[in-house]
């Protein structure tokens, strides 16, 4: 998606592109900055809810960054946090209502976790750290970048949990039937919550092995 946009709009300068892509790896909100793990890991049992969740978070991060950035010079500093919360909460409510109206089955699976996007530290973190100081367009791009960086981890975790846990991807069986006849079994453990944490631990391990600069002292 980003490549087609890049050709049309001059706003995608080199600096802005870096804003967009750095959260994918070096500044990944989950594995490097430890933000926003709370609300969404429980939706990684299957790919579909994880993708919808990733999309919702991206939309909320991007638009709240945009709105806060537009308003940044008018917001009285003393009620800054409340204003940010109100903007984020309204966007989340809108996303929740839209999900309920158009993708009802997924919204049932996400249950309370849509509401928990509000307390997702990524959003508040980006608003405080970036959108309050920068112009609307870079803020918007920064929001999209962080949303995607976050969503990537969700989708990767969901990929492994769905594949190993129920032998499916996006609800379709991908493990050949002959495997089961040979004695292969789905690992029910992967569906249980603790395995999401362990999967992330392993992702961090892989990422840091390839990227030595991230290793903690």
């Amino acid at each position: 998606m980003s490549t087609t946009k890049k050709d049309k709009e001059p706003v995608f300068s080199l600096k802005n592109m870096r804003l967009l892509t750095s959260p994918f790896n070096l500044n990944n909100p989950i594995t490097v900055l430890v933000l926003g793990i709370c609300s969404a890991l429980a939706v990684t049992v299957q790919m579909k809810p994880a993708i919808i969740m990733a999309l919702s978070v991206t939309i909320v991060t991007a638009f709240s960054s945009l709105i806060i950035s537009v308003l940044r010079n008018t917001i009285p500093p003393s009620i800054r946090i409340i204003v940010q919360l109100i903007v984020v909460a309204s966007l989340v409510i809108i996303v929740d209502q839209v999900l309920k109206a158009y993708v009802y089955d997924v919204s049932k699976k996400l249950s309370i976790f849509v509401g928990l996007i509000i307390t997702n530290c990524i959003i508040m973190g980006r608003l405080e750290a970036f959108a309050m100081q920068n112009k609307p367009i870079p803020s918007f791009i920064d929001g999209i970048g962080n949303g995607i960086g976050y969503g990537m981890i969700l989708v990767v975790v969901a990929f492994f949990r769905e594949l190993l846990g129920s032998g499916k991807l996006l609800g379709m069986s991908v493990i050949p039937h002959s495997f089961y006849e040979m004695g292969y079994r789905d690992n029910g453990m992967m569906i249980l919550p603790p395995m999401a944490l362990i999967t992330i631990g392993v992702i961090i391990w892989v990422q840091r092995s390839r990227n030595k600069s991230l290793i903690e002292k």
């Binding site: 917001i75 009285p76 003393s78 009620i79 109100i86 309204s90 409510i93 809108i94 209502q97 309920k100």
Partner: peptide, 23 residues
């Protein structure tokens, strides 16, 4: 500050109600 927050609350309330009623 007072005017700002009142305006914000009214704006948000209207927007959300419209969305909720529409959907």
């Amino acid at each position: 500050i007072f005017l700002y927050s009142s305006a914000m609350v009214i704006l948000v309330a209207v927007a959300l109600t419209v969305v909720a009623v529409q959907l």
